[in-house]
Design a protein around this nucleic acid. Structure first.
Length: 808
RNA sequence: GCCCGGAUGGUGGAAUUGGUAGACACGACGGACUUAAAAUCCGUUGACUUUUAAGUCUUGAGGGUUCAAGUCCCUCUCCGGGUACCA
């Protein structure tokens, strides 16, 4: 059998594409722009992971197929090279990130990415660590600062003792640092924040109409977490007023105590002399608790009494005020009214500390005693004086809130779970935050003309845990003058979270040629928002959330005329090996390089896509790539002229061949459209099987096969296309048009069921009427015996498919 | 706990709107070629009863709707992912 040599063929086409500029896009001249974006990788020292390739290939197929459909596809690539992943590795190996990173990038691009056969336009590469890029990352910061979307505040923040830096809420996973798995603690520090909460409501509302994978939207919805309720005003007996947030204002009469978060600023003020020592001891102990300790499964509630009492505004009842860490300062007002009868957490707390439990909701059915178990459900109010009989509901807007609002005791309000994005990092390997602290002017933005604030190359870049970046040790870096008053000043020494670098990289790709603006308005108008973004769902509440927020911010500031960065986002699945998640610990990580070397990129790509459903994920099996090489060999042999022969240049005449050809074109096109790559490969296999079995040697058939397989196996497809005299690149040949008529079979096999059980199959001409079919069915052998002595009470006909006879 | 996915042969996985379950592969078995092996090609391959032929069963478990259920509805089990004291 004629085989092809992937090493030679792939090298040939890599060189050809590069020479001809096949993968480069004329951005200014494009008529039908299609911006095909994939999530850029961070250039780790380990090299590209098979998961990266799975993601990239699935995206590349979309890019290549859109090109076949006549679009001008722009498919760029870059490197997300700032951040702790690179820096931690550098620290471990003792190599400076400034030297290690460029080498990693080089290796990623030249030895790996370029060998995969991705249709990447390398003339627009982006590297987030280059000053030409991070100059504009800093510009983003300055722009946000000037528009009051970036601010500095002292707050209790997540501190990773391993990485010795603060982290955003999104980077704390199960109480641990996303990068190094250290247990995260709380630390009170002054930090830079972006006002992500400012757009929480609109970002949530916008989700409904967005063309995104549903599970990604659900994750964002939960993370933003809207809850509607009321803020109710209480007063400390003989002290200040304070507000609580509740989604159950209807249960106001059931509030038997109040709880303040340990960090609540009113706590020291209201605590009585007698309780001072105990309260301050408790507050200190909360500070030192880690997230893991605080949230430990089944952890008992803790808290202390402040000695103060609050006045319930509806009945003037005095209730004790407690401090407890189950109330969080970062949510609502940092204080709650506790209704132990109708809230599980309050109930647990009340039981432990012997606080009263008053039932105010009557569900109208038998329930356990609220003294032993909280009742959380709908019903009617009781023990609530003038509110008795009103509807009580666990969610929604209640009439009772309006009543309270009229009396000035409460107001409707909406709270979001989302927190402002903490963006400062006490680390070295990131873009310095472009702010200067001046004693007289306060924090001042570095003027745009002075950007970038260059990251100095320092040898001692180890974080010291002091709560300040290693840059704070470099006086030459931070000693400066105030851009406003000219007085002595110090630079901000923290660097930005690297999620800021990745929140805007796709605006930069089209505009890499411009050094006087982050993105060119004309090109941006033409190419953005991104047409299709394919990536992993693990970024649902990180990169995808941040980049949506930044887009909205830039839109509000007048730099973009759209508020959503991606027209469509598709989340691919995760790939596992032999049923188990891949990890270094398990030692079952796949090295893509070896497979590509041994079997070729085309076989590897096609196998990755055949393995399972792209959107669900797949299971990588060892023999798979080899088997796929076997298929591509068979495909090659099937479509090339037979030994000593030629291909028929007439259109195929045989109806069977016409059927297979046309229906495969139809099916593969539909499969590409819905990311169903595994079935697309199966369809092509069926067509190839037909061609082989029937020795079809036909030019049109062969060329079509090359086009069908091209997005999957681009090198091989080009090789076949060229050998068969096709002009130009196979990707510039218009996608074949199928003939609907030829997709129909002339003869079909009817399934005959009796009472829903299959009793026979008869081949019949397609398109017959029930009347024409009936006698043939009744007479057919195998069916007749099931009808003997029975009466047909119903007949169901499904055209060209099935007859079901219901008998008695 | 809550929110999403899943569960189909020995294995990975197919199955547009309910209409032939197991497409397409892998593996296994048998055969051809070969001194032999590899490679390649051809055939068989859900389970059970049984000699053929035929029949029965079969999409995690149990119920239901329907002429017809992997697909729709209810209850439950297990697995994967996300999230977690958010008032």
């Amino acid at each position: 059998m004629a085989k092809y040599d992937p090493t030679a063929v792939e090298a040939k086409w890599r060189a050809r594409w590069e020479k001809d500029g096949t993968d480069r896009t004329d951005l200014a001249g494009a008529k039908k722009p299609f911006y095909n974006l994939m999530m850029f990788p961070y250039p780790s020292a380990e090299g590209l992971h098979v998961g990266n390739l799975f993601a990239f290939v699935g995206s590349d197929i979309q890019g290549r197929h859109h090109r076949q459909l006549g679009y001008d596809v722009f498919e760029p690539m870059g490197f997300d090279a700032f951040g702790m992943h690179s820096e931690n590795f550098a620290l471990r190996t003792g190599r400076h990130p400034a030297e290690m990173v460029p080498r990693n990038i080089e290796r990623f691009r030249e030895s790996q990415l370029k060998k995969v056969g991705l249709m990447l336009d390398w003339s627009h590469q982006v590297d987030t660590t280059s000053p030409e890029y991070y100059r504009w990352t800093q510009w983003m910061f300055v722009t946000l600062f000037k528009n009051d979307l970036a601010y500095r505040k002292r707050a209790s923040v997540n501190w990773c003792p391993g990485c010795k830096t603060v982290l955003a809420a999104e980077q704390v996973v199960d109480g641990q640092c996303e990068r190094c798995q250290s247990v995260v603690t709380k630390k009170e520090m002054a930090q830079w924040f972006f006002r992500t909460t400012a757009f929480a409501g609109e970002m949530l509302d916008e989700l409904d109409g967005m063309d995104w994978s549903e599970r990604t939207k659900i994750a964002q919805r939960n993370w933003i977490g809207r809850s509607q309720g009321a803020e109710v005003k209480f007063k400390i007996d003989g002290g200040p007023e304070f507000a609580v947030f509740t989604t159950r204002p209807d249960t106001l009469f059931g509030a038997t105590y109040m709880v303040f978060s340990p960090e609540h600023p009113l706590v020291p003020e209201i605590t009585t002399e007698a309780q001072k020592a105990e309260v301050s001891r408790y507050r200190e102990s909360c500070q030192s608790l880690t997230e893991v300790e605080r949230q430990a499964e089944g952890r008992e509630k803790t808290g202390v009494f402040t000695g103060a009492h609050a006045v319930n505004p509806v009945n003037d009842a005095l209730v004790p005020v407690w401090v407890a860490d189950y109330v969080l300062m970062g949510y609502g007002t940092g204080a709650i009214m506790a209704v132990p009868a109708h809230d599980e957490r309050d109930h647990e707390f009340a039981l432990k500390f012997g606080l009263p439990i008053v039932q105010v909701v009557d569900p109208g059915r038998e329930i356990p005693d609220v003294r032993t178990e909280a009742f959380v459900g709908d019903g009617r109010l009781v023990n609530s004086h003038e509110f008795n009989g009103l509807e009580a509901k666990t969610e929604g807007v209640f009439s009772i809130t309006s009543l309270l609002e009229k009396r000035g005791l409460a107001r409707f309000t909406t709270n979001y779970r989302l927190r402002d994005w903490c963006v400062s990092r006490q680390r070295y390997w990131g873009p310095p935050i472009p702010i200067v602290h001046c004693e007289t002017c306060g924090p001042v933005a570095v003027p745009e003309k002075d950007l970038p604030v260059l990251l100095p190359k320092i040898d001692d870049y180890k974080p010291d845990g002091s709560g300040r970046s290693p840059l704070a040790r470099d006086e030459a870096f931070h000693k400066t003058v105030c851009p406003e008053c000219g007085g002595p000043a110090v630079r901000e020494t923290d660097v930005s979270d690297n999620f800021l670098c990745s929140a805007w990289y796709f605006y930069r790709y089209p505009s890499t040629a411009f050094d006087d603006r982050p993105f060119d308005p004309e090109l941006t108008k033409k190419w953005l928002p991104v047409d299709l973004y394919v990536g992993g769902n693990e970024h649902a509440v990180l990169h995808l959330l941040y980049s949506r927020w930044l887009c909205r911010a830039l839109h509000k500031c007048g730099f973009l005329d759209f508020a959503e960065p991606y027209k469509r986002f598709v989340a691919h699945g995760m790939i596992v090996k032999n049923g188990a998640k891949m990890s270094k610990n398990r030692g079952n990580v796949i090295n893509p390089d070896e497979y590509i070397r041994d079997f070729g990129a085309d076989s590897f790509r096609t196998y990755l896509m055949f393995m399972g459903a792209y959107l669900e994920g797949g299971d990588f099996r060892d023999g798979g790539v080899r088997a796929m090489k076997g298929f591509l060999d068979r495909l090659y042999a099937a479509v090339m002229p037979p030994e000593g022969g030629t291909l028929d240049e007439n259109p195929p005449a045989d109806p069977e061949t016409r059927y297979w050809l046309n229906s495969t074109v139809r099916a593969v096109g539909a499969d590409f459209k819905r990311f169903s790559y595994n079935t697309a490969v199966a369809r092509i296999m069926e067509l190839v099987n037909h061609v082989t079995k029937n020795s079809v040697h036909n030019l049109a058939v062969s060329r079509t096969v090359a086009q069908l397989v091209a997005p999957l196996a681009p090198h091989l497809a080009e090789e076949i296309w060229e050998s068969l005299g096709g002009s130009g690149s196979v990707f510039d040949a218009p996608w074949p048009v199928y003939d609907e008529e030829a997709c129909r079979r002339l003869e079909v096999e009817y399934v005959v069921q009796v009472n829903g059980k299959v009793r026979g199959r008869i081949p019949l001409a397609a398109g017959l009427s029930p009347e024409e079919i009936e006698p043939l069915v009744l007479a057919s052998e195998g069916v007749a015996k099931w009808l003997e002595g029975k009466q047909i009470v119903k007949k169901i006909y499904v055209p060209d498919k099935l007859v079901n006879l219901v008998v008695k």
